[in-house]
Nucleic acid binder design. Sequence first.
DNA 1: TTCTTGAATCGACAAATGTCTATTACTAAT
DNA 2: ATTAGTAATAGACATTTGTCGATTCAAGAA
Lengths: 209, 209
Amino acid sequence: MAQLLQPEKGTPETGTTDPRILRSRRMLMDSLGRLLKKKEFEDISVQEIADDATLNRATFYLHYPDKNALLQAMTEARFRDLIKRRAITFTDCHGALRAIALGVCDYLAETTGCPSQLARMSLEGSIIPVVEGMFKEGLALHGTAPRVDTALLATTAAWAVFGAARRWFQTTNRVPAEEMAATIETVVSPVLFGASQQLESGNTEAPLV
Amino acid sequence: MAQLLQPEKGTPETGTTDPRILRSRRMLMDSLGRLLKKKEFEDISVQEIADDATLNRATFYLHYPDKNALLQAMTEARFRDLIKRRAITFTDCHGALRAIALGVCDYLAETTGCPSQLARMSLEGSIIPVVEGMFKEGLALHGTAPRVDTALLATTAAWAVFGAARRWFQTTNRVPAEEMAATIETVVSPVLFGASQQLESGNTEAPLV
DNA sequence: TTCTTGAATCGACAAATGTCTATTACTAAT
DNA sequence: ATTAGTAATAGACATTTGTCGATTCAAGAA
């Protein structure tokens, strides 16, 4: 048992094997998810979360520095799970970009739609890094001599995709997520794949959001 | 005196004329700015801010729902001020994009460099909308038939620019801001101006970050 | 000037936060 | 089975938070 409980303050280590730690964190995330269906995030206290999780309040602080860190962790875990379920292949880069965009749209629509809060959250901090990592992976496989630093492209594209998806989500009378994903692809793809070949995968109709 | 004090909860109305309100808000922002040079944001209490501003703590809550809202407001005000000082002309669109990118880089470097905090903040929520508004203005002047919704392009580009600038700022051994701004321009410009004419303004050397 | 409106102050309050120090319970290895 | 290490619990603590009602003060209009 040589586990540091909080190796990086505020960013709980996921590489733990101790079942007690996994269990506590899972229960805390689940409880927050449950409570978010009933109340606004701001109206939920750490005590409530701990109670719902049948854990002591001090245990909460053993894992997360505050409420926001838990929300962050929960969001990241859920998003990771969603994109893992739909295994995204990088055989077709444009298709991968569209699939990722769709994933972000779907995630926003499905999880933050509960009572309609957490739109103003620092979701940015949890789902953007995941998207960024996927782009980085994709660009590495692509293996073309990059115009600029690959990591910068990945970051930029990730923020662009998230910003666009977020805007779509906050819109009333949303267009279908698939359509939005296609639009995002056409707008963002030149960032990732130079400004050379776009419109290769058959979406020639002008996408108007 | 018919001023609603908080027309939108959490987003203090800027259209007030009452000198008392302006004065209080200015003093609170100034105090937060001062305190941020000494301590981390998390370690500053509302009481401290109010004391420094020689205002009652209750007065604080009359204007902002919490600390974060004040930080948000302060950030937005400062960034607005910075980009107003360097009047950005939209005669040359690519130049404008580069100038905006430079503005974001400079802002991050100059204001969040104090003791090095507020990097993890929801700055996103205050400076991205400003950038977005500038892009929207520029695209309106440009007046070309857009491939997609102009507002979406503005949002996407704003997030892309901010994300890239933020990454640059968090990097150790930063390249000069001007160089970064040029890189951001080449990466983001196809988002705004279709993927047709880039490299028109003489930056033909390959920018490597 | 006088009067009205509402911003700012003051004191007080319950609730929540974040941090301790034991103490207990359970995991993993010997 | 015993043991060492650490997660979880329990209770307590000083602070901070957000809100309230009552009061004072000042800006703008008559």
